[in-house]
């Protein structure tokens, strides 16, 4: 079942000269884990925001084409309606703190109160996301007193608690250390396994290669490729598009070893190890 359908999406920010998104077309099935990659200003954030309706409702600007998420056409529905289906986590954790709540616990409740979730369920959901993102120990702290990483987990928790069918994450681990990123990715993966569709814009290519089912490569607002990590990261023109392949892929490329029977280089540590050891390759 298709959860997201984007057809010929074109978008230009107000006062901008060029298109931020230029004729973007793709679709995503229920439960897929999708990575969006591309250099800075390639349109990753804009595309993420187009999926929750911030583009065009928040920014206005010139908009063409169609975006359907969970059966709703974005252009004809308010952000409040879309936010019930699609949750979005932004890059900067500091500005995602509402500022109206005194504790992390209350902060996570903010969205749930707004959409009218009954009290008993609010508490249940908060407890489960605190556990999922491992921030139980700071639940009574003031949100502004958290470290960047904790704040980022709180931002993700606040959105996950709203139980969207589709989760859009725009560089959600920028403030986290490697161990923290890994934990967050695993939490997201477990949600993905529960059937939630995940769209993730990231610069950490090793993580993208490891977790994503498919990768959408953007360059100058256009879709260059939308395929499995193996196919996308094996492209010869990757560097031109401003993307560096995972380190395992680069090593294997330098050594000239491909996965047996395919035209792809390994993209994860496990694949690279298997190929380089020569067993089962």
């Amino acid at each position: 079942m298709k959860r997201i359908v984007v057809e010929g999406l074109k978008y230009k920010y107000p006062l901008a000269d060029s298109l931020a998104l230029n004729d973007v077309t793709f679709d995503i099935k229920q439960g897929e884990f999708i990575g969006i990659i591309g250099k800075n200003l390639a349109g990753k954030s804009t595309l993420c925001q187009a999926l929750v309706g911030l583009v065009p409702h928040f920014y206005k600007g010139a908009y063409g084409g169609k975006v359907f998420v969970g059966g709703l056409e974005v252009k004809n529905h308010s952000i409040a309606d879309i936010s019930l289906k699609v949750g979005m986590v932004f890059q900067n954790p500091f500005t995602q703190v509402t500022g109206s709540k005194m504790t992390v616990y209350e902060e996570i409740a903010f969205g749930l109160e707004n959409i009218g979730v009954p009290r008993s369920e609010i508490i249940e959901r908060i407890d489960s996301v605190l556990n999922l993102l491992k921030i139980e120990q700071v639940k009574d702290h003031n949100p502004f007193d958290l470290s960047g990483g904790q704040m980022q987990r709180m931002a993700i928790a606040s959105i996950i608690a709203m139980k969207p069918d589709i989760l859009v994450l725009d560089e959600p681990t920028s403030q986290l250390d490697p161990a923290g990123s890994e934990e967050v990715f695993q939490a997201i993966q477990s949600l993905s396994k529960q059937g939630i569709t995940v769209i993730l814009a990231e610069h950490k290519m090793e993580k993208i290669a490891q977790y994503c089912d498919r990768v959408l490569l953007l360059n100058n607002g256009k879709v260059v490729d939308f395929d499995t990590p193996g196919k996308v990261f094996s492209r010869e023109d990757l560097e031109e598009k401003g993307v560096t392949a995972p380190v395992y892929t680069r090593v294997c490329k330098a050594l000239g070893v491909k996965k047996a029977g395919t035209d792809e280089y390994p993209v994860t540590l496990e694949e690279a190890e298997r190929v380089l050891r020569g067993d089962g390759a």
Binding site: A80, S83, F90, T98, N114
Partner: peptide, 10 residues
Amino acid sequence: MALEVRGFNS
């Protein structure tokens, strides 16, 4: 924007 996606105008 962050408030919007958390249903502030719901």
